[in-house]
Design a protein around this nucleic acid. Structure first.
Lengths: 363, 363
DNA sequence: CTGAAAGCGCTAACAC
DNA sequence: GTGTTAGCGCTTTCAG
């Protein structure tokens, strides 16, 4: 079944080819190909059987690389995210994986490391590898570059958008799927207001992405609706993030919580941009020997699996990642197969408040 | 630069080919190929310039699929793990990604979902996609299947090994890299002994993998060395795991901690099989309204990024994942390029005790 | 120094 | 029904 061959020090194992199968079955490669591609009606049942037997005997599986070169497409979707080590993105990848697998697609992962240049390299290497559809989880990459890809025939589905591409992305041919961030920010803030909090802080990293600005907007809107004037001093959003580790947001959240709580008129509730920030905030509160939720309530965003394991278990706004990634993959596959055409769609799904132990009424 | 073409409803964008570059530069495809592959000495400087200009002008990048088909190899390594959503594996993937990227390789991820059948499918689809080297993070997949792949010329590096393939894997052609698990288990247990604990529990899931058995062995050895007879009643290892979620181990750890602490003669210290179990144990201890570390000390294994964010911050035995994955990738690339040959190696690296707040002397 | 030719393994017209 | 043919885009002898 296999012969070995040496080429330039690289050992290559020769697996059976379609021609081997054809020979063994006493037929031609095209007929084997026809069977492989489900065109069984084009052959006699007995021919089919002979081929099937030969396939079994040789343990034959079509070479996808050759197939790809020939047909120009492969069931692979690219995925570019900032860091798989971050639990949120890990879960994100998992959901994309599952949705893709369910549709017969494989995922080629690109770990951008929050470096636009590297993200671009990844996207480019996906392209030359024949990947024609990419899901961008992260947003720092510039719109120009993405547009260039779109022009080159790559379909892109975005999960988050860069601030400066908000308007232009609408008609740029980039589909997107995101949670209703304004409503989510509103929901979180509203929950604290309902519990009786009136001084509520907002904890975030750089407000560079659409999602963050939208969540902040939701926060402000909820305050105003409750007759409270949003104060800039209660919004903690570092402008420079030089974090590199896996804990990223947690560090910022920890630092931010401490800063906000040590201010002259500290908040009694904290809305955070995501669960990692919230987990960090929990640690920051402990640093000051204060208690959650007695002294300060903390609410997160995303509902990562770690949220319920934290102490106290984190109240948060859930982002239905499974559903969202299913839509993202569905959209992308639709574009790839031509089943879906027309202008780009911006799909928004609702979030959900998950109440756990990190929030409570103020003392 | 691009022409569009319709085939069976699938829009294909025609990018520049090597022939286009050759034509524009007024030379032949082979010379362009020579330049692409660094054989610049085979052409006149001016020819080279003309080609380089043409490449720029067309924005040309070689089609990797064609290249792959022709040469029979591509700089891609496959990676099969149980679940990216689990923070440990997320970090694992990240490290493999980085090590691979540093060597010019890309990673094709297969998320096995702890289902041997599916892992096998992944491995198989990696093979037909031309991937000739795979890192197996998980171990449930049967040795027979892996051996079949090895026979087919796939190089395999294992991170953990299945119990029933312990001995046979040595000479099976499968390289492996793992932490010194016996020493790690010993280190953890020894730390608790040093603090004055004498009744120490061991918390694990199914003891199906080599690493788990080895850690248990280290635990027992440390006890014996301290003149304490290991008791089976203090070892909690579910045999049936029907967990499916992302939190996996945490659930078992939580349940196990409760069970052990409610037993007639409860332990004052808990050695857990990994940090997820430990995080779960922390929750289990809280469920019983006990305190860590005052009432019970908990020590983990791995040192995932979440460990220091927990409350209390988790004392744990660190597995140097970065270093290990660098070795794994190095080994695999060595095999792929032929730089490394000879019989399979079983590489072991040392672990390190990280003391944080979840351990202390017994009351 | 450069180019023509062969072919990696497969698919898809198009003949027979 | 089935086989022949012509490539997909690239690399690599091997002539010139």
């Amino acid at each position: 079944m296999q012969r070995q061959r040496m080429t330039k020090g690289i050992m290559r194992t020769k697996t059976a080819t379609i021609q081997d199968v054809a020979s063994l079955a006493g037929t031609s490669a095209s007929t084997v190909s026809n069977l492989l591609n489900g065109r069984t009606e084009r052959m006699r049942p007995e021919t089919r059987q002979r081929i099937e037997r030969a396939v079994d005997q040789l343990g034959y599986r079509a070479n996808e690389v050759a197939r790809h070169l020939k047909t120009g497409h492969a069931p692979i979707i690219g995925l570019v995210i900032p860091s798989v080590a971050n639990p949120f993105w890990g879960s994100f990848v998992q959901h994309v994986e599952e949705a893709a697998h369910a549709r017969g697609y494989q995922v080629l992962l690109g770990n951008g490391g929050r470096d636009p240049q590297r993200e671009l390299e990844y996207a480019e290497s996906l392209r030359v590898r024949g990947v024609r559809g990419i899901i961008f989880g992260s947003s720092p990459i510039s719109l120009n570059h993405i547009l260039k890809m779109v022009e080159e025939g790559i379909y892109v589905v975005a999960f988050d958008r860069n601030v400066n591409q908000l308007s232009s992305s609408i008609d740029s041919g980039i589909d997107s799927v995101s949670v209703d961030n304004v409503a989510g920010g509103y929901l979180a803030t509203r929950h604290l207001l309902d519990l009786g909090h009136t001084r509520i802080g907002f904890l975030s990293g750089p407000l560079r992405t659409a999602s963050r600005l939208e969540r902040l907007e939701g926060y402000r809107r909820a305050l105003r609706d409750a007759g409270i004037l949003p104060e800039d001093s209660l919004v903690w959003a570092v402008t420079q993030d030089n974090t590199t580790g896996d804990v990223e947001g947690a560090e910022i959240g920890r630092e931010g919580a401490r800063a906000l709580l040590k201010s002259p008129a500290p908040p009694t509730g904290l809305v955070t941009i995501n669960d990692m920030y919230a987990l960090g905030a929990l640690a920051g509160v402990r640093d000051l020997h204060l208690r959650v939720p007695e002294d300060i309530s903390v609410i997160g965003f995303d509902d990562i699996s770690m949220a319920e394991l934290a102490y106290p278990p984190l109240t948060t706004v859930r982002q239905p990642l499974g559903e969202m990634m299913s839509i993202a993959v569905e959209t992308l596959v639709g574009r790839l197969t031509g089943a879906k055409n027309g202008s780009a769609e911006q799909i928004t799904v609702p979030s959900e408040l998950i109440v756990r132990g990190s929030t409570g009424p103020p003392l």
